[in-house]
């Protein structure tokens, strides 16, 4: 069985069905990208996985274990193995950079403070933010905040990392610093689920690409197949539109 198995998952927002019968899997170390027009349910799928939006149907298995999203204990365990980075960074505004990264290991995982801060510093170094450890989020640029947010997500040593349009809110010249960080993570073999509009990047880093539309998965394939020889009309349309009008 794959590291992450999503089977026939559905979810609603209000009365609207935002996910319909979605199935997807990812092996350990795989990078799976979700593409598709906005409102197609990509971000919702990530929110369902981390337990921010409850699924109404279907099953999700992680490392062979079914997750019960109504159980607090399951949710806690799940969030110990899985982390998410949001489009809007969501750093804690009242904490310094170092504190943002170290808080979960110290307070939630009860690691000794010194050890956790040491680890946090090494993560900040990895994302190239070690010299900003005492700054506060509002003193940083979007790209810098996003790199800190990635370090914060990594601080609890997740097996699975969810990246939700992490470059969408950034200035174009800041996009690459964040993408470089993700490339680095990929080389370390962490399983990732990525929602992104950076098609060239998706094609480069993904092992698997899923095309979504109106809450359904339209097509799953290798990056080369999806971008060069899509089977479905909807995918062809989307890919050709986005490749001819790169933003």
């Amino acid at each position: 069985m794959s590291h992450l198995e999503i089977r026939n998952v559905s979810s609603v927002y209000g009365k609207q069905r935002v996910l319909q019968d979605v199935s997807l899997s990812a092996d350990k170390g795989e990078v799976v990208s979700l593409i598709g027009p906005s409102g197609s349910g990509k971000s919702t799928l990530l929110r369902v996985l981390i337990g921010l939006t409850p699924p109404i149907d279907g099953e999700i298995h992680i490392a062979g274990e079914r997750v019960d999203y109504s159980s607090r204990r399951h949710l806690r365990r799940l969030r110990n193995r899985m982390a998410i980075v949001f489009q809007q960074y969501n750093l804690f505004q009242n904490m310094s950079v170092l504190r943002n990264v170290a808080i979960a290991p110290i307070k939630i995982k009860k690691r000794p403070r010194r050890e956790a801060e040491e680890h946090a510093r090494s993560l900040l170094k990895k994302v190239g933010m070690e010299d900003k450890q005492d700054a506060y989020p509002d003193q940083l640029s979007g790209g810098q905040q996003q790199r800190v947010a990635i370090a914060r997500a990594l601080a609890t040593n997740p097996e699975l990392l969810l990246l939700d349009e992490v470059t969408s809110a950034l200035d174009p010249e800041r996009v690459n610093e964040v993408l470089d960080t993700i490339r680095l993570l990929r080389s370390e073999g962490i399983t990732m689920l990525i929602v992104s509009h950076e098609m060239a990047f998706v094609r480069e880093v993904s092992t698997k690409v899923a095309m979504m539309d109106s809450g359904r998965i339209v097509e799953i394939g290798t990056p080369d197949q999806i971008f060069a020889a899509p089977r479905e009309n909807r995918t062809r349309e989307f890919v050709s539109k986005i490749l001819s009008h790169p933003k």
């Binding site: 921010l52 969030r79 808080i103 609890t156």
Partner: peptide, 25 residues
């Protein structure tokens, strides 16, 4: 809301979220 979601995905309990994230802000 995003601050709350951020705290939730890091496994903060309600009291931890209140005392460390919401109240200071």
């Amino acid at each position: 809301r995003q601050q709350i979601e951020g705290a939730a995905t890091l496994n903060f309990s309600f009291i931890q979220m209140m005392s460390m994230v919401i109240l200071p802000q």
